[in-house]
Design a protein around this nucleic acid. Structure first.
Length: 261
DNA sequence: AAGTTACTCAACCGCTATGTA
DNA sequence: TTACATAGCGGTTGAGTAACT
């Protein structure tokens, strides 16, 4: 009756993910899609449980993640949605493209809560507070925020291989957007992720022809709007690529994978 | 320079909802 | 209908790091 247990935890690795594990998981998912998280680590050659893989993918590896700091507009939207939905982070996250529930939850707990208290609002009720103790707390320290734009491109290694250091560096909003599109190409062939990027000054580009063919491979439809250009700038990605999340049905044509259940 | 404190966020835990045999 | 597996969600923790003393 029922199903097999999800996973026994004996011998499974825990803690921070290594770059190699990230590559293994990302390559596997982008090549095969996901039909059952339980067997993903087994087939991807990872000593992790499916739950851990799922979390890593959703919160970190998923190619459509936006990354970077939240804008004021995003913070305002979070506050608005929180006042309506409460701590239903996944519901709130569904209103944002490229943001995870975990990311929004963390941001809420570390930044927005304080911001609201400074404004004299109770984060729980969104009502004005009578006892605004935090507003005048002399011990409160506000950590300066480093903006994404202040990170320099020359910190990205010439060989293009994503290391632990560069992983965060390329994750400004625009860069992450580009990475999202780049990573889709992994569906067609197993390649080193870093080799996908072509750095030109402060612009990253990818061959549109390779993108188009690979995109159509994934989605089953032509992305003709990309065919006219030799390269696509970050700005073009922003304008042209409006699909918020990479839907799993993009992998529908890969359904004949050996682990289809 | 070294120790301490504060902060961030990735990852885990435990629970619930949903699906399946 | 029941029992159980699985996916997903929200709360919490703790390692790493930056800022401060």
């Amino acid at each position: 009756m029922g199903r097999k247990p999800c996973c026994d935890k004996i011998g499974l690795k825990r803690g921070p993910w290594t770059i190699e594990e990230d590559h293994r998981l990302m390559n596997f998912i982008l090549n095969n899609g996901i039909h059952c998280w339980r067997i993903v680590p087994k087939l991807a050659g990872l000593l992790r449980c499916g739950k851990s893989c799922r979390l890593r993918w959703i919160n970190y590896l998923r190619p459509d993640l936006k990354r970077g700091g939240f804008t004021d507009a995003e913070e305002d939207r979070i506050m608005e949605l929180h006042s309506q939905l409460g701590n239903r982070w996944s519901k709130i996250a569904s209103h944002f493209s490229g943001r995870t529930d975990n990311e929004i939850k963390n941001h809420w707990n570390t930044k927005i809560k304080k911001k609201m208290k400074h404004l004299g609002l109770d984060p729980a009720t969104h009502e004005p507070m009578n006892n605004i103790m935090d507003q005048t707390d002399p011990n409160q320290k506000i950590k300066p925020t480093i903006k994404e734009g202040e990170k320099t491109k020359d910190q990205i290694p010439k060989d293009g291989v994503i290391t632990d250091t560069t992983k965060t560096l390329i994750m400004s909003d625009n860069d992450a957007e580009l990475m999202a599109k780049n990573c889709k190409t992994l569906c067609a062939e197993e390649v080193d992720i870093g080799s996908l990027f072509e750095m030109q000054g402060n612009e990253i580009s990818i061959s549109s022809s390779s993108f188009s063919s690979l995109y159509s491979n994934i989605s089953g439809s032509e992305s003709s709007s990309y065919l006219a250009e030799d390269s696509i700038s970050l700005e073009q990605w922003d304008l042209d690529m409006t699909d918020p999340l990479l839907p799993w049905d993009l992998f529908a044509n890969l359904d004949d994978t050996p682990f289809l259940l």
